[in-house]
C-alpha cells in the first residue's frame, strides 16, 4: 500500500514554490546543488518513514515521466 501523499498536501503551495525558486535565484549551480542537498536531508529526516522515502525516491528517479 502506498504511503506517500501524492495529492495536494501544501498549506500554501504558491508560497512554497516561490520561496524555493527565490532561495536559488542568486546561487551558482554548485551552491544550488548544495542547497538542494541540505533541503533533501532536512525533509527526509522530518519524514523519517522508510517506505515513504523509498516511494518518493522511486518516483523521482523516473526521469522520463
Amino acid at each position: 500500500m502506498s504511503k506517500l501523499i501524492t495529492d495536494n498536501h501544501f498549506s500554501d503551495a504558491d508560497a512554497f514554490y516561490a520561496s524555493l525558486t527565490d532561495a536559488h535565484r542568486e546561487l551558482t549551480p554548485e551552491d544550488s546543488e548544495r542547497l538542494n542537498a541540505r533541503l533533501i536531508l532536512l525533509l527526509a529526516n522530518h519524514i523519517g518513514d522508510k517506505q515513504v522515502l523509498f516511494e518518493a525516491l522511486d518516483i523521482a528517479a523516473q526521469l522520463e515521466q
Binding site: E33, R34, A37, R38, I40, L41
Partner: peptide, 12 residues
C-alpha cells in the same frame, strides 16, 4: 553529487 551530500551532511 555523492560528495555534495556527504559534505552537507557533515555541515548540518
Amino acid at each position: 553529487i555523492s560528495r555534495v551530500f556527504r559534505d552537507e551532511t557533515l555541515r548540518l
